[in-house]
Design a binder for these strands. Structure first.
Lengths: 352, 352
DNA sequence: ACATTGCATGTGAACGTTCACAACAAAAAA
DNA sequence: TTTTTTGTTGTGAACGTTCACATGCAATGT
């Protein structure tokens, strides 16, 4: 007798009886097991189509040791903050895009979870999520990707993980962008247009990417034999105010730079803002390049030339690694994805 | 003997033996069943804390008839398109925000799925998703919310559903914004600033909201005894070009309107653009109000005054209804949420 | 005092799948 | 041919939970 409160669903056994084989054979077909005769496989396949059978993900998790779930962790406070003010959340969007597409291709599902950044809350929340979900892999995004406690927790639990944007790690899979090369390319782009006085506004020293970008800038300047005036390297912390302060310092110098590279969009906006205040025309008298290329940059006046992080591709790669290699390849593998320099209207030839 | 390939996890039986009760009693505590003595409940609770036990969602789904999952369906093509070009996806962001927050509060999880808009692909994809996931409820967003086949499918399956932004439905739960009242308020805002010549650019007639907005505009004009010049009601289809065309028509009239309401941001941008081309200063000579308030509007020059759809609140409400009322209350219930008129810098007093 | 109700707890089965292993057939090797 | 290996199919158990029902015991009503 059917339990009244349950909805009945099409099961593997229904398929088996229609196809005239055992349920285990159906399971083999679903899982692309090699040891099934072609004729039998076809018979099962058509029974599946006929019934519209779809395997139940919860039961698969229960029976086997895979959940067909990839868990992606994002910074709770920052994400909610962005959402709450009606700002979009570029990182989340791009991550979902890449992660979902790749997961889907492999019959997996991406589950998206917000986790606080403070310890021990972060560890506790992650532990709860993996106990509840038992995902086959976890994607850690900044700043969680820099939290070794979380990685250790996942190690102890035996759950594979991939980090996005963290360099120099010796555990897990790490998908990164070459920040140094990107900064090098941005600087070179300016040098090629005869800029010699190129300034650089750094990001927060808490992020490894900040120093990489600075290194790339220095390397490009050195290669071109361009002298770096000490004051051209301005500190910043990714905030608008820090960008404005840096721009202010740069613009009041006797020998004003003709180009500025800002380590993120927010600070580039500030530079643009300060330039407008002083009637410094962009790009005629000043070129600006920013990092990140968040959606807002296309709306600035003029639209910003920017280095675009391949966030979607990074998420896609992270998901792919977790799905394909799973518990293996936990070697601290580092995969570098190419950046893009998107030339818009804040860069032009150096003024004479 | 433990199966070697399986990770062992803390189960309800572990908790039961620590607490010295049966596993069913633990289950009762987890599910807040009333018939448990307070002393026993406390004992179980502390055992749960001690072990760090978290119920496994897959097993809960298997044992019971709830999956603790809410499925949110979005338009695949549009979402991917937005993501692919690096535009954000305001609707998705806001929906995730509201939906996730509410789900989380109830121990549920929001799963986000992209579905094509064409039939029969849409039905097939939805059927696959619900077979695989067996969610306790489905949130349908535009344009899926207007696809009755999907609602019928869910009805047949016995899965509760909530629509966002669809009016006049007699089935499911429907969470909406009062588009007519919003247009009324927008119009009134202009009338109060002595505008009499207020034009209105409609949205695509495929969307019910379009006609509601037009009705609201007309009602406000009528109430203020403001005459509507026939050409002030311009047709549009939510696209930039349709907005530009409408603006062009309006601006070449002998008796040019002093204010324009555009049925979405995209068309409002077009109006702004056309006005700039003709050196019509905003808001001195022309006021503009748009609908939707997507993140880009704050970057327009000047920033647009806009009607903001409460998407996050709508998603939150939809999730809440599904979680709390579930299979009941499938009456075609309609819940209206308040809109917001966000006054920025494209509206001002009518020119003398 | 006895039957009746309601509350608190426990036991066995079920959910839909995969795993482990058994069984058998067919092909290859001896 | 006989033995061994390899490939194909089937059976029983397990996963971690909730459901249905049974049981015991206290409180209530007569």
């Amino acid at each position: 007798m059917q339990r009244s409160s349950r909805k009945k669903s099409i099961t593997i056994k229904d398929v088996a009886s229609v196809a005239g084989v055992s349920y285990q054979t159906v399971s083999r077909v679903i899982n692309d097991s090699p040891n099934v005769k072609t004729a039998v496989r076809e018979k099962v396949r058509s029974a599946i189509d006929e019934l519209g059978y779809v395997p139940n993900i919860a039961a698969r998790r229960m029976g086997g040791n895979r959940s067909y779930l990839i868990l992606a962790i994002n910074d709770r406070a920052r994400t909610l903050d962005n959402w709450a003010v009606g700002r979009g959340n570029d990182w989340v969007d791009q991550m979902l895009y890449g992660g979902m597409m790749e997961s889907e291709d492999h019959g997996y599902r991406l589950v998206f979870e917000l986790v606080d950044t403070e310890q021990p809350a972060a560890s506790k929340q992650l532990a709860t999520a993996i106990s509840s979900l038992r995902p086959d892999g976890v994607i850690l995004t900044p700043p969680h990707s820099e939290n070794q406690d979380l990685a250790d927790l996942l190690d102890a639990n035996g759950t594979p993980y991939a980090r996005m944007g963290s360099i120099g790690k010796t555990d897990g899979v790490n998908v990164i962008m070459d920040d140094e090369a990107a900064a090098f390319a941005a600087t070179q782009h300016l040098l090629k247009m005869n800029h010699r006085k190129v300034a650089f506004i750094s990001g927060s020293p808490d992020y490894l990417a900040s120093s990489c970008r600075l290194d790339g800038y220095r390397a490009a300047m050195k290669q071109a034999n361009a002298e770096i005036h000490p004051a051209w390297e301005q500190p910043g912390d990714f905030s608008f105010v820090s960008g404005a302060k840096a721009a202010n310092t740069l613009f009041t110098m006797d020998d004003r730079p003709t180009a500025v590279i800002a380590s993120n969009d927010e600070m580039a906006f500030a530079v643009l803002h300060e330039a407008a205040k002083r009637d410094i025309s962009v790009p005629d008298q000043l070129s600006i390049i920013s990092f990140d290329d968040t959606p807002g940059v296309r709306f600035s006046v003029p639209p910003l030339t920017a280095i675009r992080q391949p966030i979607a591709a990074m998420a896609k790669t992270a998901a792919k690694e977790l799905i394909q290699n799973g518990a293996n390849a936990q070697t601290g593998k580092e995969i570098t994805l190419p950046f893009q320099l998107i030339v818009r209207q804040t860069t032009g030839p150096a003024p004479k």
